[in-house]
Every structure is written in structure tokens, then in C-alpha cells.
Simulated assay, not measured.
Amino acid sequence: MGRTGLSAEEERFIESMGLFFERQGVPRIGGRILGLLLLADEPLALGEIARLLRVSPASVSTNIRQLQTSGTVDPASIPGDRRHYYVFNSAGWDHRLEVAISAMDALGQMCQDALAVPRLSKRDKLREAVEFCAFYREELAGAVERWRARFARRPGTQATKTPSPSARQRRSGTR
């Protein structure tokens, strides 16, 4: 990714991320931001994200807040620079699994509560839903443990990386 723009390959990847996440219920721009941050070697300022994606800073700001809430994007700072920077948070993968576990817990509990109502207590579909939620939760919990063990074995992995000011200065050509 160059300072002046994106290569055709990078643009294709970013657009495919936008479409993928749009199918998952995330606004397309949110997926595009994630794609860009996955490719970025350094934190990107809100304005740089908007310029590279050719969208408004307001749209980036709105979507960045949602991505921060989802745990996939973290704020970063560059010493001496007051702009807001952002990085992809690799720990966001854990968060996505944990959100799915919480969703299964909530759905299972709703169905369990419904089974406690005498008129609904014999509904086989509700029992099946409770069983499915318990099964899926156990599978996801195992997936979280396996992912964490796998990710921890990778050398140099961490949730966020912030370059030294000298690296940032070299990139922008200032000293």
C-alpha cells in the first residue's frame, strides 16, 4: 500500500471484504475499513482511511466506532501527533467467538425460560433449540481455546502494534 493510493490487488481485496461483511450484516464501508486495516503495516489516521477508500471522513468515523465496539479495531496513537489512528485488533477474532457464545447462551436461556411456562413445557422444538444452543456453545468454547493456543504459538503476535516515531517520520519524509 503506497502513500498515494492502493494497488488494484489491494482494492479488489478491500472491496471483497466490504461485500463479505455486508452479507454478515455489517455496513459495506465497515468491511472495507477492516480490509484496509488488515493490509496496513502501520496505524492509519481517520483522514488517511477516508482518502484511501474514497469515502467521507464522517462515514469512516461512524463505522470506526462500530468496529471498535465489535473489538476488531483499536485506536492507536503516534507520539507528538494529535490525529486519531486506528489498527486492526487481532484479538478481535477472540471477541467474535465470545459474542457467538453469548448469543447462544441468550437464545438457549430464552428457550429454557419458555419451557418453564406450563403451556409451552412440552414443545419439542424448544427442547431441541436448548440442546442445540448447549452443543454449539460447547463447540465454540473449544474453538476459543484452540484458537488462543494456536495464536499464542505464533512468534511476534500481539493485538496491536504501534510503530516508533522514527518509522512514522521515515514514512512521511519528516525528521
Rank of each mutant, 00 (worst) to 15 (best):
R82I: 02
S16Q: 14
S164F: 09
G156C: 04
P43V: 01
V55W: 02
T160G: 10
W93F: 15
T162S: 11
S16E: 11
L36P: 01
R153K: 11
G71W: 03
R171V: 02
I49T: 01
R127A: 12
R175A: 14
S70W: 03
I29K: 04
R153G: 09
A114D: 15
L39E: 04
L44E: 07
P27M: 07
G5H: 06
L120R: 12
R32M: 14
A45G: 05
Q169C: 14
L120H: 13
G31K: 08
C111Y: 15
G31A: 05
L39G: 01
T62M: 04
T72I: 09
Q24M: 13
F132S: 10
D124A: 15
S121F: 11
M104N: 13
R23S: 15
S164Y: 08
A143F: 03
V60Y: 00
A134I: 14
G92M: 07
Q169A: 15
I29S: 05
L97W: 08
A50W: 00
E131H: 13
A45C: 00
L53F: 06
P118K: 11
R65F: 01
G80N: 06
A91F: 07
E22Q: 12
G5E: 05
R119Q: 14
L115G: 14
T157A: 06
F132K: 11
N89G: 01
R82E: 08
A45F: 00
P79Q: 10
P27Q: 05
A58E: 08
T157L: 08
R154M: 12
Y85L: 02
A45L: 00
G108S: 11
A106P: 07
L97S: 08
I33W: 02
V99C: 08
G25Q: 06
V26G: 01
S61P: 00
P57V: 00
R175V: 12
R123G: 03
P43F: 05
A8D: 09
R51G: 02
Q112F: 13
R51I: 01
R82A: 06
S70Y: 06
V73A: 00
L53H: 07
E98K: 14
S166I: 12
A149I: 07
R170H: 11
R3Q: 08
P43M: 06
D105A: 14
S59F: 04
